[in-house]
Write a protein that binds this DNA or RNA. Structure first.
Lengths: 229, 229
DNA sequence: CATTACTTGTGAATTTATTCACAATGCGAA
DNA sequence: TTCGCATTGTGAATAAATTCACAAGTAATG
């Protein structure tokens, strides 16, 4: 169960979990790898490979027990005890995220927000107490927060990251378009909206080009590039 | 210049472009691969490998000409003529995205939004005309829109995707937690906020475990897993 | 001009991720 | 019970992405 969990596997387990949740609510008791696969747009082999990390086996010819598999994924993926998060920045993106995340996971809660703007801090925002960034360290310590979300303007992102790291945060979800400098041991996941949109636009153009090709290079409509592999 | 552009390279080129833009505004005329690398948290070799797709070469001992490299990236990555996008759903996330993207790229514009809610459509929202989703096809056709953003509730996402595809859209940025079913040739990029937060929380816990280990397995503080590789 | 100390571009090696392919298994039908 | 069939788990093969490592090149220096 220890050591070197493939990064992408973690993400896909979330997808499988959602399918299992839905299946359970439909009363299904067993599921095959190929069904989980089709719901997540991966191959059945990929699903089975991913599930290896759980140490739970399905039964041949019957598939996986929906309830048990779901519980194993939860045990692996979700915190055993409540894990707390904080969000820095309650501008447009920050508020949207706050609203989106609130009440989503019982074991993973955003318990505070942080702001530089005195108009915003020292009151509740979307059901969440908003503090001055200057009090970040004590808030994070006192609450035992381990996850930080950065939704501040780009130029403030590194400062916030430093505050987060200094206060003991070990995982950062970063919406700023800045490569954060953090010590090894702190995990950073970037969500770069502008980059994503650029990429979609790029591949959309490519797709159009291939439709009316001056010189059709590809021998067959290759589906392998349509998706993030 | 044709064929098989590595998916991740596209994203990184955006990062390099930002660094080049900043360098240009500082008056720098040349830059080394290792500088671009450090600004994007990749290796210098990675940068040079990525830049190979551009067909532009730097000069040894001098590096890359900031202005020229930037222009080559723009020519490769950005649309030559204005490319248009539409966003479906102007709820919390949708409005935040609209506000975020507006006026960001001169060649890539969100020119319309779509809604099912009659309270919202047929008026301007954040400077952008909002139409009924029922008129989507004509709006998309008439405007020549090629990129669609999905920011609607999960259960409506597939419907919107079908509308998009039917209207000729070739690239979709999907914020719904649904695996969209689209024909090959249409590029989909998913931004799954819940998954990302789960993943950050997971690695944050892992990091904490490794700090106070009952059984320290890893021989050395392995930095290779700190980032999405 | 020759030397030094850097760089770049890229073939090859390596690492990481995915898919293949098949033995082993268990269910259900006869 | 026995057979047939569709499934699982996983070693091995493949594919994709990254890094290594070094020849070749350029600028700066004396």
């Amino acid at each position: 169960m220890v050591g070197a969990v493939p990064y992408r596997t973690i993400g896909r387990l979330t997808l499988y979990w959602r399918t299992l949740r839905d299946l359970a609510s439909e009363g299904q008791t067993y599921v095959y790898s190929h069904h989980l696969a089709s719901q997540s747009r991966v191959t059945a082999a990929q699903v089975r490979r991913d599930l290896m990390v759980l140490g739970y086996s399905g039964t041949p010819a019957k598939g996986y027990n929906v309830k048990k598999l779901r519980m194993h994924i939860e045990a692996f993926l979700f915190p055993a005890t409540e894990q707390k998060a904080v969000i820095a920045g309650v501008g447009n993106i920050g508020r949207a995220l706050l609203k989106f995340f609130v009440g989503r996971r019982p074991m993973l809660k955003i318990v505070a927000s942080l702001e530089v703007n005195p108009d915003k801090f020292d009151r509740m925002i979307l059901g969440c107490p908003c503090h001055s960034i200057e009090n970040a360290k004590s808030v994070i310590h006192d609450e035992g927060i381990t996850v930080g979300i950065i939704a501040v303007p780009d130029r403030e992102a590194q400062y916030v990251a430093d505050v987060f790291v200094g206060a003991g945060i070990r995982g950062i979800l970063n919406f700023a378009r800045t490569s954060l400098n953090v010590p090894s041991g702190v995990y950073v996941e970037d969500i770069d909206l502008a980059m994503s949109l650029d990429r979609v636009a790029f591949f959309a153009r490519q797709s159009l080009k291939e439709d009316q090709p001056a010189s059709p290079k590809s021998k067959s409509p290759d589906a392998s590039k349509e998706r993030k592999p």
